[in-house]
């Protein structure tokens, strides 16, 4: 680790004033953990995970109606639209046009439910089904179109700083770079690019929400993301597919809090060599070279 990197990682102290809220499109959140609702073994387990995690925002997907799940139930029976901000995604869309249609469908459904997330969309425009990484060109096109149509666009992005900047310039409400590919559990694999994104998007605009979306595997990954200065973490698989999703949801809650507090505290710089914690004067032994 070089000195220049260690200086960069030494974050400025952020004044802690009362509630540590963050804001998306004028909506304040006390919880910095956004959870996805996919891949759970049961709706009951999902609901309990959301309770334990104390999340206030939940992502959902738009799919062709088959009326109900196999047991005749709908997800909305388990996620109260009056309690949670529902953030509809455009998962599974591979071009701007389809993603825009999908976003409009999500908005139409949520308007009927009087949910604050009605005009919000977690915009995913994917490049291929193996990596599930975004197609930046189509993503930018879709962002421009949806912003013009009054959407609050939260963009699932790659960790490319220039793409992130272009998305913000196009009017994205939040840019949400992937820590690593969706569902991979690889955690935060490109800290340097993510730090560049944070510095760039928050330059002169410190309240601009930048959220890590995807890739985290466990609580320490979430803590790392928050220590870097992200406003929140959005995750799904790491909780839903854990052996004990409810306990992992709790771990993620603490991971977010630990990382956030550490970020606000201003960590020490890294150094290649030791720095003694005990006084170096008055030692009774002869000093070893």
């Amino acid at each position: 680790m070089t000195d220049s990197i260690s200086q960069e990682r030494c974050q400025p102290v952020v004044a802690s004033t009362g509630l540590d809220e963050f804001c998306i499109a004028g909506h304040k959140f006390q919880s910095r953990l956004i959870l996805g609702s996919g891949k759970y073994d049961s709706f009951e387990g999902m609901r309990e995970s959301f309770e334990v995690a104390e999340t206030q925002c939940v992502t959902i997907a738009v799919r062709r109606e088959r009326l109900h799940d196999s047991s005749g139930r709908n997800i909305l029976d388990f996620v109260d639209p009056k309690r949670f901000v529902l953030l509809p995604n455009t998962a599974g869309c591979y071009d701007a046009e389809t993603a825009v249609r999908c976003a409009k469908m999500g908005r139409e459904i949520l308007r009927g439910l009087e949910n604050p997330g009605a005009d919000w969309v977690k915009l995913e425009v994917l490049g291929d089904s193996r990596s599930l990484l975004p197609d930046p060109i189509e993503l930018l096109k879709a962002t421009e179109t949806l912003v013009k149509q009054g959407f609050q666009v939260l963009c699932y992005s790659s960790d490319d700083p220039i793409v992130a900047r272009r998305l913000k310039d196009a009017g994205a409400t939040s840019v949400m770079p992937a820590g690593s590919p969706i569902g991979s559990g690889l955690g935060i694999i490109n800290r340097n690019s993510l730090q560049i994104i944070l510095e760039d998007l928050k330059h002169g605009d410190p309240q601009y929400p930048v959220i890590i979306d995807a890739g985290v595997g466990t609580a320490s990954d979430v803590a790392v993301a928050m220590e870097l200065g992200f406003d929140a973490v959005l995750l799904n698989t790491a909780v839903a597919r854990a052996k004990d999703p409810i306990r992992m949801a709790e771990a993620m809650k603490y991971g977010v809090r630990a990382g956030r507090l550490a970020y606000q505290s201003g960590r020490i710089p890294m150094s290649r060599y030791a720095s003694a914690s005990s006084p170096e004067v008055g030692v009774i032994s002869k000093r070893n070279p």
Partner: peptide, 10 residues
């Protein structure tokens, strides 16, 4: 016609 609803997703 496309008739869609909400399902679990990330």
């Amino acid at each position: 016609l496309e008739i869609v609803t909400l399902v679990g997703g990330g």
